[in-house]
Amino acid sequence: MADPPSLVPGTRCSHARFTRSGRTSKPTPIRDRRLELAPTFLLIDRRRLHCKDCDSVLSERMPGVELGHEMTRRLYDDIFHAAVNRPYQDAANLHGVSADLVETIFREHARDLIGDFAPELSEMVAIDETVLAGQMRFVCNCLVTRTLVDILPDKQPVTVEHFLRQANRNGRVRVVVQDMNDHYRKAAQKALGPEVLIVVDRYHVVDALNRAMNASRVAVTAGKTGPLATAEKANLRKIAPLLLRNRREMTRAQWVELKEILKSKEDLRNAWLLKEALKGLYGLKSAERAAARLARLEARFPKRWPAAMRPMGKAARMVTKFRVEILNWYQVQQDNSFTEAMNNRYQLIDAGRAGVQFETVRAKALLRYGGLLDQWYLDRV
């Protein structure tokens, strides 16, 4: 008698009387990991088994082989992990197969790993948006484990609110770090409750002030023409980096240079002073002192901003609108630098997508940065 029928799983035959019936006429070629960049195949000589009861002839199974692709399981896993970590064509070149095969293997295995994936929020999360597959997508990261929670197909308030409510099913969220996006603030308050601490991170506040400062610089010479205007624009472009730099970070020579130009440009000088005062909120010892400074600044806001100060005035109004969330930074000194760094990584996945849909980019991001695969294995391939 031959080995029991467990050697031939998948057969409809339920009998136990198997006998050997010779071997297959030709060895079965199974693709394996390449040796020295050359295509490598294992030629497996398989036994045939004959059932006396139903008169069927079955071939012996091959452990460790993906029969659907005629390759070893280890090569299948290598191709999948390479597809997670690389563009499909790069993974294909690495293993000597076609890009279509790489994509097929990735879709098969990713579907199994992510099919029942249910994101869950931790005590501290960061929310933001980034462009993937040509559209703005909502991104949520965990600041406790430093992993990706999920990427949504859009950033609509209804979508964000539904996601936050579903992912917080255990009610663990205590802190949400975000930028100055009012839709996100309202969605977080509705979905997570009023007791959740919402923190507007320092990076986005400083970035908004810097962009407003640069816009104010451009507004100073807007509409001016002629040689004198050209020279003025050139001088202002020259000091543009100094306008964005904090006063305490300048050398004495840089400060003298900046002060000399600001002396003759009152609106630009006032915009720069406001920028410095608002950035200085983060250098105070307590939230109470920061709140007092912000109140004094707001009391001095003009009813009508001069043209060159309008961009900075708009940024200042935004700061006062989010005063509570900005001052919450003193309770949890956490920013979104991790999320900004991760956005760059997600965009690198998107850069190598070559027409792949958003769902595939999301799957790769979750597998690489969502804790669904061991990072050491990804680094190895």
Results as ranks from 00 to 15, higher is better:
Val158Phe: 01
Thr159Lys: 04
Glu161Tyr: 01
Glu161Arg: 13
Arg165His: 09
Arg165Cys: 01
Gln166Ile: 06
Gln166His: 06
Ala167Tyr: 05
Arg169Tyr: 10
Asn170Asp: 10
Val173Arg: 05
Val173Glu: 02
Arg174Cys: 00
Val175Arg: 10
Val175Lys: 02
Val176Asp: 03
Met180Ile: 06
His183Tyr: 11
His183Thr: 10
Tyr184Asn: 12
Arg185Lys: 09
Arg185Asn: 04
Lys186Met: 05
Lys186Pro: 01
Ala187Lys: 07
Ala187Cys: 08
Lys190Trp: 02
Pro194Phe: 04
Leu197Glu: 15
Leu197Thr: 15
Val200Ile: 15
Asp201Ser: 14
Arg202Ile: 10
Tyr203Cys: 12
Tyr203Glu: 06
His204Tyr: 12
His204Val: 09
Ala208Cys: 09
Asn210Lys: 09
Asn210Pro: 04
Asn210Arg: 11
Asn210Trp: 06
Arg211Phe: 00
Asn214Glu: 11
Ala215Pro: 01
Ala222Lys: 15
Ala222Cys: 03
Gly223Cys: 07
Gly223Glu: 11
Thr225Asp: 10
Thr225Asn: 13
Gly226Asn: 12
Pro227Gly: 03
Leu228Val: 13
Glu232Gly: 10
Ala234His: 14
Asn235Tyr: 07
Asn235Trp: 10
Leu236Tyr: 14
Leu236Asn: 14
Leu236Gly: 09
Arg237Thr: 00
Ala240Met: 15
Ala240Arg: 15
Pro241His: 13
Pro241Gln: 13
Leu242Arg: 02
Leu244Tyr: 00
Arg245Pro: 07
Arg245Asn: 05
Met250Phe: 01
Met250Glu: 04
Ala253Tyr: 04
Ala253Thr: 12
Ala253Gln: 15
Gln254Leu: 05
Gln254Glu: 15
Glu257Pro: 00
Glu257Phe: 03
Lys259Tyr: 04
Glu260Trp: 13
Lys263Asp: 13
Ser264Thr: 15
Ser264Cys: 07
Lys265Glu: 00
Lys265Cys: 00
Asp267Arg: 06
Leu268His: 11
Arg269Tyr: 05
Arg269Phe: 07
Trp272Arg: 14
Trp272Pro: 00
Leu273Arg: 14
Lys275Ile: 08
Lys275Asp: 13
Glu276Tyr: 11
Ala277Cys: 08
Ala277Val: 03
Ala277Asp: 14
Leu281His: 07
Tyr282Lys: 08
Tyr282Pro: 10
Leu284Asp: 03
Glu288Ile: 06
Arg289Ile: 01
Ala290Val: 04
Ala290Cys: 07
Ala291Tyr: 01
Ala299Thr: 01
